[in-house]
Design a protein around this nucleic acid. Structure first.
Lengths: 234, 234, 234, 234
DNA sequence: ACGGGCGGGACTGCCCGTTGGT
DNA sequence: ACCAACGGGCAGTCCCGCCCGT
């Protein structure tokens, strides 16, 4: 009875990595090309992640040792570190970011950046939530509840920012170091994150899509303190 | 160990105000009595911080062990942890946050929140930078450069958010859990942080006041991707 | 059946540290002064050494893990490293060097250095061998037989050289960095060591005192290749 | 793993002579045929050594990982171990020992052993230092300065002793296990080593030839403590 | 309260054995 | 048939928590 039992035991998809939904023939071909070795590695990786998440939910994150995870996966502790540089990284492996980027890039070019961003986001969220809602919620709960993980959230944010800054720089022709670009991106991502936090705080009972939309609305309209001052005439 | 619940109902820590708010004579007397002890503790604390920062800059953060710090301060390693819960906290001890809050609260009540916020910020920054510019820059560099510390940045952000959310909730009469309040606060703080990051990225050569003002301008005007799309007509 | 079972199971003195033979009252008093804590530490240290040596002889050095030693002593593996910086150091803890030095310093001042050296050596060896012969032989066998330990022999030699150089420098008034002093010392110590090696090579069947004396004779007479050339007239 | 028996009956490793001794034409032809392969291997070996030494000097020995070396040479870490049994062996690959032996064996037979030894040494040193002085100094500095390497020095010494003992046994007709032979050899080699140490301690500023000659003089005259006692009449 | 001793867990780096792909 | 890649095992370091004695 150690830490947060925040995380309600929620079923992880049995074979998460393999079940990533239907694939086009090209991708299947590409996968075949990478060879047996790659595939095996990926499978081990997925198993580690699945078993680790299971143990984290059952016993708590800190109470779970690498040794236990290794035992569950039937690998040696040192092998664990061949797959994940640290215990924390097992939780932080977000496959959605690159997915989001590629979807964003695929938007019709006549759409404005803002529209493209919002639509991608909404559609991606919708799709992803149909599949992985419980997993995402479980992961988010861990991330927000465990200090060691919460500490790493910023790294995640920066990573997203850099990824997205790169894409936007290319798209707009701006320098990737441009102040306005970087700040705007940071602010947008923070807003999304803030929405996710509120979602988790309300234990996933709200509609995440709506929360995200509201957050984006606020940011686009301008985040002003005066706007939240109920005493003010506005 | 130090895991705790997701929902930390935002509010000001009771004891944090000690050094700021007015006190009855009795209490003042009591403080004077134990004052020496307190003062001594504070001095040790400062010494630890100073020596630690010196070692960090000389040898790097990771290469510096608690033992070395303890040796330099002439305390035992275990005593170090009586003063700071972890190695990281030596770097993250920001005395400016509560200062900012108290200055913000002291603004004339006819000022709008937005104006009060901006002016407090600018004035506080100006004052603080006259004194501690180099120290702040050194700390910021560490924070951004060392992974273990960068990881903790988010904790710092959340702390600031909670602090500020509490104050704003009281001021505006809103629920501290209010979605708009929390998201707005988060976004503002992120923007400030983003400005600071860019400042450090340019090695402190830019004027931090100007960067902060620009970031705030952008956020208040609305952070829109379309605004950075140089290809767009707008 | 792993490595050298060179080392015949030989009885270690049951409580080696405590049984260090009769002591003068002064020393006993000094020991009492250092207190309970010190004594306990020393006891643990001795236990580690005894158990480790036992395991090394039973299973071989490399086949014995720190964990096993820790288990046998009922301490945690990390505590092991509080007592010995490395696995190797358990074997290399020679209490005889300082003893030799102090005996050497206590020789009557009218003795020449050479005489004092030889007599101290012979007497110390005689005394030590009455007590600890089997232990010394076991340790020497390990040191010569296990590569990881053999590798550290040189460190031991250098340590002895530095110790002895310091003493001799003071005694003779020479600079401790003096070339002749350092080379002479090195050569003498090497000769002693060479004798010990031959002793172990013959499995301790020869009389070590005689071997040492022969080696010293050779060195003092001048180690000349021509002297071993049986084809030569000399 | 690589533990072996105490008594390594001294003798020349059979395969070490390959590059030196005469061979039948068939074998020569065979060598020529695979010569390319051999050559390539040797080249890789040299590259590893060069890159490793570079990295050691740039970042220090301990701070350099096998992985970094492998990366620099563009081989896999496991391949590294096909060329060198351990990280330490990269530093310890002394090609001069067999060279010295062959030069010693080639001396005219009317020379006494002592004369032959000294002349070979001086000439070999002179030749070698014309070519490789800086490399040798760098290697020696590493060997003396890094604990992990210093520890292996003794192995090197023993290797030299066994090599040389074998040669001398054959030349003099003595048993290779002869006490006098082995001790004399050990002492001589130690003296040479001691001279080299002093050379490195003085950062290579002294003339190494002179130091070696002085050390040999001392050993041949007899290493006596009385000789360094400046207080004594003699 | 302060020191210290002890425990334990994350993580790194060396090295080895095996295996599977080329 | 070679050889890299992978998994495994162990030493060792550091952070940090607990408890004890002072």
């Amino acid at each position: 009875m150690r830490e947060n039992s925040v995380v309600a035991p929620s079923g992880l998809p049995a074979d998460h990595g393999e079940a990533v939904s239907p694939r086009s023939p090209d991708i299947r071909a590409a996968r075949a090309a990478v060879g047996l070795r790659e595939r095996k590695k990926q499978k081990t990786r997925d198993t580690i992640q699945r078993e680790a998440m299971r143990l984290f939910q059952e016993q708590g994150y800190e109470a779970t040792t690498i040794e236990q995870i290794a035992e569950a996966v039937e690998i040696s502790p040192s092998t664990f570190f061949n797959y994940f540089p640290s215990k924390e990284d097992v939780v932080f492996n977000d496959p959605y970011d690159p997915l989001f980027i590629s979807m964003f890039l695929a938007r019709p070019s006549e759409e404005s950046l803002g529209t493209a961003f919002r639509r991608t986001l909404v559609e991606e969220l919708a799709a992803v939530f149909d599949r992985d809602r419980e997993v995402i919620l479980a992961r988010a709960r861990l991330m927000m509840g465990v200090p060691a993980l919460r500490a790493h959230v910023w790294e995640e944010l920066e990573h997203s920012r850099d990824l997205f800054c790169g894409v936007l720089a290319e798209r707009t022709g701006r320098d990737p170091d441009d102040f306005d670009l970087r700040v705007t991106t940071m602010v947008l991502i923070s807003a999304l994150f803030a929405a996710e936090i509120e979602w988790v705080r309300h234990d996933g009972r709200e509609d995440v899509l709506e929360l995200v939309n509201r957050a984006l609305d606020m940011v686009e309209a301008g985040a002003r303190l005066d706007a939240i001052d109920t005493a003010s005439p506005g």
